Simulated scan of single mutants.
Amino acid sequence: MSRAADLRLRDALDAAAAGVPRGPLAASVDRLIGRYREGGAAATPILAGATDVLAYALYRMPATLAACSAMFRQSAFRLPGIATVVDLGGGTGAAAWAARETWPAARITVLDQVAEALQLGRQLRADESGTVDFVRWRAGAAVPAADLVTVSYVLSELSAPDQEVLLAAALAAAGRAVAVIEPGTPSGHQRVLQARRVLLDAGWQVIAPCPHQDACPVRPPDWCHFSARVERSATHRQLKRGELGHEDEKFSYVVAVPDGPPTGDARILRHPLKRKGLVELQLCRPDGTASRDVVTKRQGAAYKEARDVRWGDTWSDG
């Protein structure tokens, strides 16, 4: 994620929260955190009103922006020229901020059932260039066609049958790609694996993070996830009662396209371990396996490249 996008969102959130008492916001954050930790489908919308919506935006939008930006960075090389994006259940529009950063000319539509979330999303983008529409939408209603359809941090709020209905709607609307992102927890990874199976069963091909179409080789108690650094604002630290100026948002995701050749490159599954004269990489490989690769200084150019790669990057498996 670019520092500019992070600062623009931070400024917009601070402006939205100006003059709002911190007590009710902090109480709402505590309630929302408790609700998300409980997990499971919600019988009613988790965001019950304007205070919940603002609290959610203040404590979650920076992390969601960072995670979605990382997801797009890890897959956008396979998705040049995206012109239209629809974000299903996009709330206040964090994924839309990431999409705007990645494809500046794209027309973006955020669909959600919570009117207050859509209203805050419009307010946060009031001074931003480009076109982002926030539209009231309920499950089962038509989804406008788009090059890319994103499903961002939504599946955890739905029952298993409703998850499949939402993914079917995303597949029907998407012309070039579907992207699903969930928290980087074991349960979040399981939801992503289920979404991956729906996408593959529909005849689509996974392009990220997996370099293959086989079963996930990462086995419990481990799980496939990635990390994005989030710089905390003063308000963010206050509401989350955090002391550090940053946090690391863990996320799991899958991006699929209707057709296209495989990447041919492995995916780095953990922070590269750098020691004197060598770099150790944990890789998911195009042959459907996951294993360790050690790159030594004797390998010259490969070693120099290994010193610069990050968790989530691709790696030539040749």
Results as ranks from 00 to 15, higher is better:
Glu157Cys: 10
Ala172Asp: 13
Ala106Lys: 09
Ala142Pro: 00
Pro144Thr: 06
Leu155Met: 04
Asp112Glu: 02
Glu157Gly: 13
Leu148Pro: 03
Ala168Tyr: 12
Phe134Val: 10
Ala117Gln: 15
Asp147Trp: 07
Arg100Gly: 14
Leu148Tyr: 05
Val165Tyr: 04
Thr131Gly: 14
Gly130Asp: 13
Leu166Met: 08
Ala139Ser: 13
Asp112Asn: 01
Glu164Val: 05
Ala146Gln: 12
Ala160Ile: 07
Gly130Tyr: 00
Ala173Tyr: 03
Gln119Ile: 06
Arg176Trp: 06
Leu167Asp: 06
Ala117His: 02
Asp127Val: 08
Gly130Phe: 04
Ala146Thr: 06
Ala172Gly: 09
Thr109Cys: 09
Ala146Pro: 03
Thr102Glu: 13
Leu158Gln: 10
Glu101Gly: 08
Leu148Arg: 05
Arg136Ser: 13
Tyr153Met: 15
Ala117Ser: 15
Trp97Ile: 15
Trp137Lys: 03
Val165Gly: 05
Ala115His: 07
Thr150Ala: 11
Leu111Lys: 04
Ser152Tyr: 00
Val135Lys: 03
Glu116Tyr: 11
Ala173Met: 09
Ala146Ile: 00
Leu148Gly: 01
Ser159Pro: 09
Gly121Cys: 11
Leu148Ile: 02
Gln119Arg: 13
Ala115Lys: 03
Trp103Ala: 01
Ala117Phe: 04
Val135His: 00
Gln119Ser: 07
Leu155Phe: 00
Ala174Trp: 00
Ile108Asn: 04
Ala170Ser: 00
Leu167Val: 09
Ile108Trp: 08
Ala174Tyr: 10
Leu158Asn: 04
Phe134Ser: 12
Phe134Ile: 09
Val154Trp: 03
Asp133Cys: 08
Ala117Pro: 01
Val143Trp: 12
Ala169His: 12
Ser159Cys: 01
Trp137Glu: 08
Ser129Gly: 08
Val149Leu: 04
Glu116Phe: 06
Ser156Thr: 10
Ser129Met: 09
Val151Asn: 11
Ser129Phe: 00
Val165Ser: 09
Ser156Leu: 15
Ser129Asn: 07
Asp162Gln: 15
Ala168Gly: 12
Ala141Glu: 15
Ala139Thr: 06
Leu167Glu: 02
Val135Met: 11
Val143Asn: 08
Gln119Gly: 05
Val151Trp: 08
Ala145His: 05
Leu171Asn: 07
Leu148Lys: 06
Ser159Ile: 00
Pro161Lys: 14
Val114Arg: 11
Ala160Gln: 14
Asp127Pro: 01
Val151Ser: 08
Glu101Ser: 15
Pro161Ala: 11
Leu120Thr: 04
Gln123Ala: 09
Ser156Asn: 15
Ala99His: 05
Arg122Ala: 14
